[in-house]
Design a protein around this nucleic acid. Sequence first.
RNA 1: GCGCCGUUGGUGAAGUGGUUAACACGCUAGUUUGUGGCACUAGUAUGCAUGAGUUCGAUUCUCAUACGACGCCCCA
Length: 453
Amino acid sequence: MIKRQKGCNDIYGKEAKIWKYVDTVIDALMEKYNYNYIRTPIFEATELFHRGVGETTDIVSKESYDFVDKGGREVTLRPEGTAGVVRSYIENKMYGDPNQPVKVYYNGTMYRYERPQSGRDRELTQFGVEILGSDDPMSDAEVISLAVNLYKMLGLKEIKVNINSLGDTESRKAYREALINYFKPHIDSLCDDCRERFEKNPLRILDCKVDADNEVLKKAPKTLDYLNDESRDRFLKVQEYLEIMQIKYEINPNIVRGLDYYNHTVFEIEAKVDGFGSNNVIGAGGRYNGLVDQLGGPETPCVGFASGIGRIVMALELEKVKLPINDSVDLFLMYVNEDEKKYAAYLAQELRLAGFVVDTEYTDRALKGQFKQADRLNAKFTCVLNSEDLDNNEVKIKNNMTKEEEIISLDVLIYYLDEKLSSMDDECDCCDHDNCGDECHCGDECSCHDSEE
RNA sequence: GCGCCGUUGGUGAAGUGGUUAACACGCUAGUUUGUGGCACUAGUAUGCAUGAGUUCGAUUCUCAUACGACGCCCCA
């Protein structure tokens, strides 16, 4: 048997419906924030990612999907969205567009050559936004607020925003030196990995899980103490805007992010979900004022955010968030003999074109099995086509909830179904009516909320 | 790159060094039923990831490989 590639997933069934739902919520939200959809290629010149990310880290050395194509070109499957967007921004001279800043969002597959574990696959889907061409702290706050609103809109309850500032290049450099000087005499008390980090990327020592309780780590200098006046002022403004937007946040000086191109604001958003695995960060981002310049464009201040759709879906599933997903059919058509079957084919077509969700029997099951199938499909109505009824130009329609049965003339069937179904739809199905929470995230009026008052 | 655990039918799974691999769901047929959902009866893996080894004999023990799960590193 041919199997799927390591770290790749087939998304189907109920899960696929959740994915599609998440996509629709993203599209709707992006429209409100007035971000434009952008699609960039799934593979790019290897150099783009290597230059963007920096050559030093493991990311480039062993975690990217590099290959040489038949023309001898070195290409890489994109590991993240930002580099491609920035390349496109430069190549298409979007910086020349009078409509500034450029606000875009993407939603597509990314590839990372990693060992898979919970919430980490080789093929993943990420949604992300970028604001290119604004250095205004308000844009930092907007990106953070947008992320929070997305998660809330989807129905995730426990969302925690952690923010930090790395400051500008000058501040960042000063901090890095201070950190190295601080850790140098204590290096023996750190774990093996941290000793390695000390050489390669000292900022990440702050993130260490093993040494998290180590006094040396707790007393380490904080990024915020090394911000110059301008950077500090900027960070305060970001906070001010977050407060204006009523976004709750926490300052976490240990958030440093892995890459060099980040400066000023960095943030991570956690979702507190039981069973989420070792990492509960559901989205992250920050400001990267140096990247456009680094990739050969004009100096352009940018801020962005990205979030894995797979992890969002996982959180929604683990939290058992009730979503407005239609998993039922309006009518299931059953039949026994060949003439009835032919009529089922005809009627299914007619009713579908009239706008109903109709399904029927395809595997020649006995009537007993067909009823079971109707239940599996959550059919709202069932109908056993019967030659005698059809001769009288009638069908028997059964409400599968109440089990009431009515004989309906074929001439008025469409009107009958339309009326019955629309009265059923009055209640929104976004929440569990027996155990309804305070918030209704579908945006519609929900009858169960009124009845609770 | 490193570590730990796992791999049994259509599905969820129990289990054992030795004739017929438990149970449940599903499915099929039948009994009953005003056209199903309940109940009952019967059927439904010559096979326990692959390869090698130990053994009189292995699904069960050992090793390797593949795949999966989780964790570390790293995290765009």
